[in-house]
Design a binder for these strands. Structure first.
Lengths: 145, 145
DNA sequence: CCCTTGCCTTCTAGTTAGTCTAAGGTGTTA
DNA sequence: TAACACCTTAGACTAACTAGAAGGCAAGGG
């Protein structure tokens, strides 16, 4: 099976712009062209793109992905470095998930707070968002340390 | 208590560049200056910055954070919109976490695969990274669709 | 008193990773 | 034969930082 750039874009949930960008950066070295110079993607290209999308989404910079690609193409003697690279990425992603979960807690609190206010509106209450307090501060001493 | 920009940067795990950037964008409206024109941050500013960092880390664009800030400053009648905004951000963050967990699975598989290769090296085996297969494809038919 | 160190300032330029527009080619359908 | 849909490239634009240059101010040491 072969696919057009738009089909691939839809399949991968990214834009065709990004795919062209990755291709321009040499990250899709096996993409073919048809008689009209259009890019033609096959299963292998999709597999590669899947990895690129995964690594990008988990925060790996383009340059590092390019390096990884070169390692894979270089053959089995680069397996140790590939292993280290993936281990690092694994740790990075786990950390990122934990961080997001922390941030989510704050958002959950905000949601709960606003839900409460919606049910039981406080007439301009005390310290709701840390902003009522802020405005109190503004009108108090100028506090030049 | 009041803090210098570097102290705040350390506390919040962001750079002083980012803090100045947020301040320049009007997102820290209560930051004071000392006699030397240096920025002086207090607890309220830290609270605000905490929210900014949280919303940015969970993917909210600067413009939307600015909008949220304006809502908070506008008073209680904006609580319904603030609620909707935070609900959206909550959903966005939950989706992002799920997505990262999916991507992590692929990374886990790569790690496991390389770990196996390290213990039991396959002499340039079949379809390890989707690249041995790719190179096979290259040397086969040019496939101009 | 001067000099260095260190932290701050503003302004400006550069970076990353896309994202989009313009101008144009090709192929299918009405 | 024209309209439409799809592709192409080159290059401009964007968001959100990120960094460098040039300089102010205060503390401390010789």
């Amino acid at each position: 099976m072969s696919y057009s750039i738009q089909e691939v874009a839809k399949k991968m949930h990214i834009t065709s712009y990004s795919i062209r960008y990755y291709h321009d950066q040499g990250m899709l070295p096996f993409v073919q062209r048809d008689a009209n110079n259009n890019r033609v993607f096959n299963e292998i290209d999709l597999e590669w793109l899947q990895i690129i999308v995964c690594l990008r989404a988990t925060g790996m910079p383009i340059a590092e992905i390019q390096h990884y690609l070169r390692l894979v193409q270089a053959g089995v003697e680069t397996v140790p470095e590939r292993y280290r690279l993936m281990k690092t990425q694994q740790a990075r992603t786990q950390a990122e998930i934990r961080e997001l979960q922390q941030h989510l807690k704050l958002i959950d609190r905000k949601v709960a707070h606003y839900a409460e206010l919606l049910v039981d509106p406080q007439p301009d209450s005390i310290v709701p968002d840390g902003l009522a307090a802020a405005q109190a501060q503004v009108s108090s001493q100028p506090s030049t340390k």
